[in-house]
Design a protein around this nucleic acid. Structure first.
Length: 922
RNA sequence: GGGCGGUUAGCUCAGUGGGAGAGCACUUCCUUGACAUGGAAGGGGUCACAGGUUCAAAUCCUGUACCGCCCACCA
């Protein structure tokens, strides 16, 4: 084995072998365990969030596969309608072309080409990350057989009366020229103005003042509303005002929606351009006056001077014209929430258009019950409330999009505008007896991407056919996703799953936090803080990283800032850390926190961890290869028994970590055991046996056997999080360890319960460790090199101390760096020495010029102060009579004992301080 | 306006009722035959604040402050 762990070559080689041998496919035996991947968008490459999520899913998958489950991790990618269309359109624009020029068919062809590129990059990234998905089952949401399922669902929903088409007010994106669902709207608070406009009374003098944030919509006003109980305006209800600039009259109506305290208490009502006004218009039978075109300019229903003006130009002109007429009472600054498209960032317009909707309440009710009943469990449970809140006030879902990239709506129109919903044009004709000579035209619109996403758990498994995969792996075991798409995706999958399969799509939803940069900032191209996960795996030079981060920026003026920040953060570029280090650091990050700060130092930490493990394995192999390892006749030492007990402890921590989706717990358990127990202690203890001429062959055999078996079990426990290094080392140790199997991937996950408990090993080992730590503490504080062997005397040794001492002398001399200690007789006086305490046992290191009395006094002082503080706390606790009365007896007893120990310790330390002080003063 | 998170060592974070923890960073020592991507030792925290419950609170309850997120039709 090489001296340092070199991941690059190992990873690609091992993954190729796994894939070639078909290890990712379900085993077909055992209980089913399945996860469907949240399909990444084919908009580019995977980002850190994907890599994080894939690590979690892969760890869960590998863990269950090793535990004997029939395990499927279903891969796939998403066409991501708007997002992908925008990416390709931007590419076209950069090349001086436009989508419109190209035409629908050619454009869609271009997007398919891009899909091949992006999908290929994504698959490649997933392979480098070690994802054990079943590639044979890979699907894309727009694959023809997947589209057929989408059509099937649409038609069935339509036939059940749950899909309807109609002219409704929707969120309209005038840049993308499509409708959006409520969820795709981000409400941002922005600074604006509140214009107080005077609307003259139609008859007689005077005017009403209405307050508005959008004066340009006045052209679409259908009424002015006041609160029915508002004394100021009560008498005017039923009368009329004249709409300035347009020669129309508006009724004054009463509606309790109006807040008399806001503005003037009079509201202009524009039913075709405001959601509230729309509702009010419906209540009062007001006309819907649409004044805008699809690109948000004023249309021909407004007076000539304003026609064709963009909404904001129209606003300026209308305000100027009203001002000229003296019809503006005042303008005040006002904060308002502006709706913007989540993709385009365009200011959206409520606009009347023909759209398709899902009547959602009938679907929502069973989906709410499924969570209430516990059929679907959110982890952490706090997200349940978020789900309920949205589900209880859910509104109909606008599913049609005026885009080109997506699932075409299966509806056909005749010349009269009648439409027929069917699985195909032919079926539409058959069902409605339409002559082939009558032209039919399919709806131009496509479906919201989330429509097909909602079907994902069952569509990927074969629905509507009752395929073996559907029967076996549906409902899936767990959905792993971020909280940002609970509404977009999780809720809709539960609704659709229940509707079309009668079952929930997954039993658990594990909601993880969102990956942010080291400063807690969201990672985004425009911030210039994105990292390609593979750049951490393979490393990247500063130059390459700079060019990656600064090309294709939406706002080129950001370039300088991005470059500066990048140079500051990665002056040397990024080193190659390997996949396992990245995965382990992701796991360590997977706490229940919402925001997860990704930090390079964590990756470095786990790179070092991998190297540590690699070298521990080197040491083990060095000592076992070509040697007898048959445990028959082996003698197992205290250290052997102890490390086995600690191994069991680690395994049970891992088990509960996985059960609770706490991969941070799993990663920490592995780290602590590997580094601080196996390497720091056990390997060093093993050396004391293996390098000793005094140790018996049976003892050496026991140590070798324990070394190789502990390592082998550790590797299996590590495999779900660090698949590559565990496989690589396992391949080298499996023969010596005497385990069968071709791959660690399909080896059994180690079981804590199969390791018998050993209640005596840990206390004795604790004594050994404390002895060693006591001596090391003196050496460390006195700057004495560890390997300088010291003379040590023991005072006050009890029978237990003597027993432990005799049994473990070889450990003590080696790990503490001492000569075999001499036990002082009860009456024998000790030379002046530095002292370490182990219960009542005093470990003495004679000072004789080695240790300065002043330094030892300082050390003693520190210990003494600590002990005294502890003692006084404990004394006040125990002196409280209520404590003994109410606390559990075992707590009281423990504290009593601790009190005695502290008193002994303080007595010893004080006596020692006195002795050293005397010496110093001589 | 409603709701949900967070506040623990310089930094990033674990820790849900009984002696304050990890990693990194920092200080000192160590070219020991697995590993300097290493080893040994050490310093550093009134657990945001104020009340309350309890024999006992970082942990449970109430409130306050600050930070963040989600939802929401006040023009």
């Amino acid at each position: 084995m090489d001296k340092a762990f070199a991941p690059a070559e190992i990873e690609t080689r091992i993954y190729a072998q796994w894939e070639a041998k078909g290890y990712f496919a379900p085993s077909g035996t055992g209980p089913a365990y399945s996860i469907v991947i949240p399909p990444p968008n084919v908009t580019g490459t995977l980002h850190m969030g994907h890599a994080f999520q894939d690590t979690i899913m892969d760890a869960l998958t590998r863990y269950h596969r090793m535990r004997g489950f029939d395990t499927l991790w279903q891969p796939g990618t998403d066409h991501a309608g708007i997002a992908t269309q925008m990416v390709v359109e931007r590419q076209l624009n950069a090349a001086g072309q436009s989508r419109i020029e190209l035409g629908r068919e050619a454009f869609v062809e271009r997007v398919w080409q891009w899909k091949e590129t992006s999908g290929g990059m994504i698959a490649q990234q997933m392979r480098r990350l070690g994802a054990s998905v079943d590639w044979q089952r890979d699907v894309f949401t727009l694959d023809p057989h997947m589209s057929a399922k989408v059509t099937e669902v649409f038609v069935r929903l339509y036939e059940d009366g749950l899909i309807y088409r109609g002219k409704r007010l929707v969120n309209w994106d005038p840049i993308l020229k499509t409708a959006l669902s409520d969820l795709e709207v981000v409400a941002e608070e922005e600074k604006g103005s509140l214009w107080h406009l005077r609307y003259p009374m139609a008859e007689g003098p005077g005017y009403l003042v209405v307050a508005t944030t959008r004066p340009e919509t006045m052209m679409g006003d259908a009424a002015v509303a006041v609160h029915p109980d508002d004394e100021r305006y009560r008498h005017l209800i039923g009368r009329k005002v004249r709409l300035p600039l347009a020669m129309r009259e508006l009724p004054i109506i009463a509606d309790a929606y109006v807040d008399p305290a806001f503005g003037s208490g009079c509201v202009k009502i524009t039913p075709a351009h405001d959601f509230n006004d729309y509702d009010m218009g419906q209540r009062h039978g007001l006309p819907l006056i649409n004044i805008m075109t699809l690109d948000a300019a004023l249309n021909d229903s407004v007076p000539a001077p304003y026609r064709g003006l963009d909404r904001f130009a129209a606003r300026a002109k209308i305000v100027a014209d009203l001002d000229a007429l003296g019809l503006i009472e005042r303008i005040e600054p006002h904060k308002l929430t502006v709706p913007r498209g989540d993709r385009s960032n365009a200011i959206l317009e409520p606009l009347l258009t023909d759209q398709w909707f899902i009547d959602i309440k009938p679907l929502a009710a069973p989906a709410i019950r499924a969570v209430e009943s516990g059929e679907v469990r959110f982890v952490p449970a706090t997200w349940t409330g978020v789900y309920y809140e949205w589900m209880h006030k859910i509104r109909d879902w606008c599913i049609s999009r005026q885009l080109w990239w997506g699932h075409r709506i299966p509806a056909w129109y005749d010349a009269e505008g009648r439409f027929y919903v069917a699985r195909s044009e032919a079926q539409a004709r058959r069902a409605h007896g339409i002559d082939p000579a009558v032209p039919l035209r399919q709806d131009d619109d496509v479906l919201d991407t989330w429509f097909s996403s909602a079907l994902w758990p069952f569509s990927t498994l074969g629905w509507p056919e009752r395929t073996p995969a559907l029967e076996t792996y549906y409902p899936t075991s767990v959905l792993v996703t971020g909280f940002d798409i609970i509404f977009f995706w999780v809720a809709r999958m539960i609704m659709m799953g229940l509707k079309f399969t009668g079952k929930v799509p997954f039993h658990a939803v594990y909601i993880h936090g969102l990956i942010r940069d080291q400063d807690g900032q969201k990672m985004s191209k425009s911030k210039g803080n994105v990292i390609d996960p593979l750049d951490i795996v393979d490393g990247i030079s500063l130059e390459a990283l700079l060019s990656k981060r600064t090309t294709g920026l939406m706002q080129p003026q950001m370039k300088a800032g991005v470059e500066k920040a990048t140079r500051k953060q990665f002056p040397q570029g990024i080193a190659a850390y390997g996949t396992d280090a990245l995965r382990l650091s992701f796991a360590r990050l997977a706490t229940q926190s919402r925001d997860l700060r990704f930090d390079m130092t964590k990756v470095e930490e786990y790179r070092n961890f991998c190297n540590k493990l690699w070298n521990a394995a080197r040491y083990v192999l060095m000592n076992v290869e070509g040697r007898e390892l048959d445990p028959a006749g082996a003698e197992f030492s205290l250290a052997d028994r102890w490390i086995r007990a600690r191994l069991a402890g680690m395994l049970s921590r891992i088990e509960s970590g996985f059960a609770e989706y706490r991969l941070d717990v799993v990663a920490n358990a592995l780290y602590d055991f590997t580094w601080h127990e196996f390497c720091d202690w056990y390997v060093e203890l093993a050396k004391a046996v293996l390098q000793s001429d005094a140790a018996t062959p049976a003892a050496k055999l026991g140590t070798r056997h324990t070394l190789i078996h502990t390592l082998e079990i550790l590797l299996r426990a590590l495999h779900p999080l660090a698949p590559f290094i565990s496989e690589e080392i396992w391949q080298r140790v499996r023969v010596s360890a005497g385990v069968s199997g071709d791959t660690i991937m399909r080896a059994a996950f180690p079981d804590a319960a199969s390791i018998p408990s050993d209640p005596l090993a840990e206390p004795e080992m604790r004594w050994v460790m404390d002895f060693i730590l006591g001596v090391r503490q003196i050496k460390g504080e006195m700057d004495i090199p560890l390997n300088r062997r010291l003379e040590v005397l023991l005072q006050n040794a009890g029978p237990r101390d003597l027993e432990f001492l005799n049994r473990n002398l070889h450990y003590l001399t080696r790990l503490a760096g001492i000569e075999p200690p001499r036990v002082l007789a009860p009456a024998e006086s000790a030379p002046i020495a530095a002292v370490a305490l182990l219960g009542s046992l005093e470990i003495l290191v004679p000072m004789k010029g080695l240790i300065e009395p002043a330094a030892e006094l300082e050390r003693l002082g520190k210990r003494l102060r600590k002990a005294e503080i502890d003692l006084s706390k404990l004394e006040s606790k125990l002196s409280n009579s209520q404590f003994a009365l109410n606390a559990p007896p075992e707590i009281v007893a423990k504290d009593q004992q601790r009190l005695e120990e502290l008193r002994t310790e303080i007595g010893q330390l004080s006596a020692q301080t006195e002795r050293v002080t005397k010496l110093k003063n001589q």
